[in-house]
Simulated scan of single mutants.
Amino acid sequence: MSRQCEVLNKTVSFEKLINLLYSTAYRLTGDHQNASTLVKKTLCDINLGHPPGVVVKQLCTVFLANNTTGRFRSNRATTTSIAGNTIRNGTGIQDALLHLNPVERVAVILRDVLRFSYAEIAETTLLSEKDVAGKITSARWALRKMLISKTMEK
């Protein structure tokens, strides 16, 4: 287990856990209604006696399982074309995240936002650690390309 996840598991109160789940769900879905639905579904599927890191992994698993049906895709309108992708004005990184494929989005959020280890991400996404590293690398490059293009438009 990563050092960050160990600290997370020891220090999170119930309120902080709910805030963490909602924040992570919003980063994954880009939509308040979908984030709330994702958190509720996760809380119904798991015992809250688990450490917070396990609950966050479950949230990501629920997101990936339901994303193939389009259930947690954002409903927000898009307005600007950047690097071949349509980006909403004024949302920057969050909007760029929404243009990653779901597995890349989960991997980069777990690694770069929540500091999970590659092994923990591999366990959550059911990929090898090598594949996780590849997904994270490609996601970072895509984010960089989209954000640089957006900056140059201003």
Rank of each mutant, 00 (worst) to 15 (best):
T37N: 15
T37K: 13
L110T: 15
N9W: 02
P102V: 05
D131R: 09
N75G: 10
T124E: 03
A35P: 09
K16V: 07
A83C: 08
L126A: 13
I82K: 05
T91A: 06
T69L: 15
Y26P: 01
D131F: 08
N85P: 05
G90T: 11
T78W: 06
P102Q: 11
G53C: 14
T29W: 01
T125K: 11
A133Y: 04
D95H: 00
R73V: 11
R3H: 11
I82W: 08
I109V: 15
R115H: 05
N9K: 06
V55S: 01
E15M: 09
V55C: 03
I136K: 00
R144L: 01
L20M: 08
K145Q: 02
I121K: 04
V113K: 06
S74P: 02
N85V: 05
T125W: 11
R111A: 12
Q4V: 04
E15T: 09
A65W: 12
Y26T: 04
G92N: 11
N19H: 10
E6W: 04
K150N: 14
P102S: 13
V106Q: 08
K135Q: 09
I87M: 13
A35C: 05
F14D: 12
G134V: 02
A133Q: 08
A77K: 13
L97G: 00
I148L: 04
L8W: 01
T137S: 08
E153R: 15
I93L: 10
L64G: 06
E129M: 14
F63P: 00
L98M: 14
E104M: 05
E153S: 15
N89L: 10
F72Y: 15
V12W: 07
D112P: 10
G134M: 02
N85H: 13
S138Q: 08
T11S: 15
L38A: 12
I93D: 03
V54T: 13
T80W: 05
S138I: 09
A142G: 10
V108K: 00
Q4E: 13
M152L: 15
Q58D: 01
T61M: 14
Y22P: 01
L110Y: 15
N47W: 10
F116I: 12
V12I: 11
A133W: 04
V54H: 09
M1G: 04
